[in-house]
Structure formats: C-alpha cells, structure tokens
Design a protein around this nucleic acid. Structure first.
Lengths: 161, 161
DNA sequence: AAACTATGTCAGCAGTGTTGACATAGTTTT
DNA sequence: AAAACTATGTCAACACTGCTGACATAGTTT
C-alpha cells in the first residue's frame, strides 16, 4: 500500500470545487435528524417510513384514491400495496368504494390512524418550531420560499385527446 | 363497507392540528427531489445512496478512519463494510495503514473517486443555487441558520478517566 | 361485445439498514 | 511477556422498501 500506482486525491474537496458543499451537507444532516424521531416511534409498531408517508397523505386528503397516492409518492403499485395492506389490516386506514366509479378505492384514515399521524408529526413540528423560533416572520417566509424552490416543478401533462 | 363500525376521520388534518404541517411536507418533497439527481447517476454504476455518502465524507476528509466514518454516518459496521468494499474494489477509494497505529485504515478517494463525487454533487449544487438565487445574502444566511438549527445538537461525550 | 381502467396480487430481485458472534492483528496495561 | 483492550473485517440471517413483469378481476366506456 505504500507505493501506490493509483492517483490519490489528497486535497479534500471544498467549496472551491463545489460552491454549495456546506448546504449539501446541512441538508443531509437536517433531513436525517428530522426523520429520526418518527422513525423511532414507527419501529415499535413494526412500521417504516413508507407507512408514515402513506398515512400522512391519506390523512391530509381523505377520500384519496390509490392512483392519486401513487402519483404523489412516486413509488410503484406493488411498493404501495404492501404498506397499504398492513395499514388497512391494522385499522389505521380503511377503504370504501368510489361513488361514481366503483372500481376506485377511496382511502380514509380511521381515528386510530389520525391519532398516529398526529403523534408522528408532533416531534417533527416541534423541531421545525425550534429552528424557526430564531427567525422573524420574514425569515420564515424565506425558508419556505427556499424549500419550495428546491422542489422539482411539476411537468404539465397532456391528456390524450 | 357502507355501514362502518370503525370511527372515520373525515376531516383532513391541517395546520389547525399541526402548525408546521406545510413545512413537514415541503421538507419531504424538497429532499426527495434533491436526492433524485445523484440517485439516477448512481444507478448506472450499480451504486446507491450509501456509496454516495461514504464517498462524500471520505473525499471531504481524506485520511479518515473507518471508525470516524461510522460515527458520522450513524450506521453499523456491517452496513458500511459492504459499500466500502465495493468502493475499494472498484477503485473509488483506497485504504492505507495508519502511521501511528497500524490497526487503523485511513481512507482516501482516488482521482476516479474524486471525479465521481464532484459529478454527483454538481446537480445538487445547481439545484441549491437555483433555489438560493432568489434570495439575497441575508436570506441565504437565514436558510443556513435554519438548517443548522434542525440538526440534532451533538451530545457531549465524556471520556473514561 | 370489445377495449380500456383501477386495483390487487404473485414471484423475484436489489439496496441498505439491523443484530450477534467470532477472527485477526496490533496496542496498551499489568 | 501475558492479559486486556481496540480497530477492523467477516459470516449468517433478517427487515424494510424500492423495483420489474406478468397476470387476474371487476367495473366502465366505446
């Protein structure tokens, strides 16, 4: 190992190479810690992040269909089916037939599901609150604006005529 | 399904229930999109996010030991061993013995590894740059401050006397 | 009746996290 | 020098969540 033929990069990468390196790193740590509180709670239930997200969006938009959920989560039918089944079997979510279109499955959180999503969101909300507390109203809007700008703009979908 | 005995939560959860709900959602979407660009690149190499992070921190701090990497990444030895082995076998990272302590394995990115981490970081940096471009210097500091405050404060570790 | 749509399911695979046990080499302590 | 400790590696096994492709069923639209 002493006489290497491979070229080594001994100089650390820095903001000279990538100007926003510090922000990249901050985002990694911030998101990891942000998700860590609910992760711990979920573990006790035998659930994971996918359950969290599924329950979240269903609670946020009661009556959502499976297809709509797939679009939001950007995962495959099979990935969703697994966690959705578990959430339904353990009474966090229930399905009901669509009124106009009986093929559709409208998804609703039960009271049990609602209680869980509120419990999971609480530490996240508190963390955000702590971080925001240092900022004035203007600063909070700045953060919101920044996060929004980080999101991939929705592509306009053209319907088949 | 028409006559349900289970109690339904038909009212959507909202900022009435969780004040920072919108920020929670924004963070989810922002991070998912932020990580999606390098994810696509990694796929072509047969690598994943764990490889990305490992290579990142080694490039950032050349000469890092395995133990130090474990502390930063907060994963288990076995999880790291797998991706580290692949990175070493495919010449993105090399190991060398510690000078003082020959048990230690000092990790360095090769030029190939350096090139990869720069390529992976580029779209992330560009995305941050786009999002930051709307903000003035003061706004950028606000975002940095916010992200820092979202991170779990390091616990003070007491050394055995 | 035929074509299409919404959903569900099966089998199998990949990446990355986990635990616990054990092995080896090197360092420090007694 | 022997004993204890440390840094790393490895083995086996498992869990969660993403993927693909194929196929089935029921309901809707053409």
């Amino acid at each position: 190992m002493t006489e290497e033929t491979k070229e080594l990069a001994k100089r650390p990468i820095s903001t000279d190479d990538i100007p926003d390196l510090n922000t990249i790193e901050l985002l990694f740590f911030a998101y990891r810690d942000f998700i860590s509180d609910p992760d711990r709670m979920l573990q006790n239930l035998g659930f994971g992040r996918a359950h969290h997200r599924t329950l979240y969006f269903v609670s946020r938009s009661p009556g959502m269909t499976v297809a709509e959920l797939l679009v939001i989560l950007k995962i495959t039918k099979q990935s969703l089916a697994r966690v959705l089944r578990q959430l339904i079997d353990s009474d966090y979510i229930i399905q009901s037939e669509g009124e106009n279109d009986r093929r559709k499955r409208l998804l609703f959180a039960t009271e049990k599901g609602r209680a869980l999503i509120l419990a999971l969101s609480k530490p996240q909300s508190e963390r955000i609150n702590r971080a925001m507390s240092r900022l004035d109203e203007n600063g909070r809007e700045t953060v919101t604006e920044f996060l929004n700008a980080m999101i991939e703009p929705k592509k306009i979908r053209h319907r088949r005529s």
